[in-house]
Nucleic acid binder design. Structure first.
Length: 191
DNA sequence: AAGAAGATCAAT
DNA sequence: TTGATCTTCTTG
């Protein structure tokens, strides 16, 4: 079980170090292979930049809280609140892709897809596969409940690249992937 | 009251 | 490349 102090650091460190950790939700679990960092200060792509409700959420919750929201009216996106202790170090980690480990038949049933690579290879896909929706918004992920994290069991090679699907601050290399994983959403551009 | 924007996905 | 679909925030 990953403890709260893991999330009492800045979003870039948390995003990088979550690669290779396990996310579990009920009977389902997978290795985190892709994340993105969003910073409360100085990042125009972060919801705190244009949503007062998000700034309120950040003030009212402890690090390790789930921040789940509906995007494009269709897809739930799963984030973790991180607070490094002071404005510029606060933010969110978006979990974007998993390598499925357990509960694979449940994932297949919820996704209506069979291939392992189609189950959790995107932020909207993994919430559907794990059954995460807005009802998980605000829950504590460090409380030993049904959803949480397990530490790494190997030493991953992590690659950083540009974030996906945003227009503002699109050039920042704040997306992190497990190198050469076939389970990421979009393969990083090879230089 | 109405409109725009938005961290996506699957089918064409 | 496009359509689906909804919440939040801003403007009138």
């Amino acid at each position: 079980m990953i403890e709260r102090d893991f999330f009492q650091r800045d979003p870039l460190t948390c995003s990088r170090e979550l690669i290779g950790c396990e996310l579990f939700a009920g009977e389902c679990a997978g290795v985190i292979v892709e994340t993105e960092a969003y910073c409360a200060v100085g990042d125009e792509a972060c919801h705190t930049f244009f949503r007062s409700g998000t700034r309120d959420f950040m003030a009212l919750h402890a690090p390790g809280a789930a921040y789940v929201y509906l995007n494009y009216g269709l897809h739930w996106l799963f984030n973790i609140l991180v607070k490094g202790g002071g404005g510029a170090k606060d933010g969110f980690v978006l979990v974007r892709a998993l390598e499925p480990l357990r509960g694979i038949e449940s994932m297949r049933a919820r996704r209506q897809r069979h291939a392992l690579r189609d189950l959790c290879s995107g932020p909207g896909k993994l919430t559907q596969a794990l059954g995460i929706t807005g009802k998980e918004h605000g829950i504590d992920l460090c409380a030993g409940g049904g959803i949480g994290f397990q530490p790494r069991r190997f030493n991953p090679e992590v690659e950083s690249c540009q974030r996906i699907g945003i227009v503002k601050a699109a050039d920042l290399p704040w997306r992190f992937v497990l190198k050469d994983s076939p389970f990421v959403s979009v393969r990083p551009r090879v230089e």
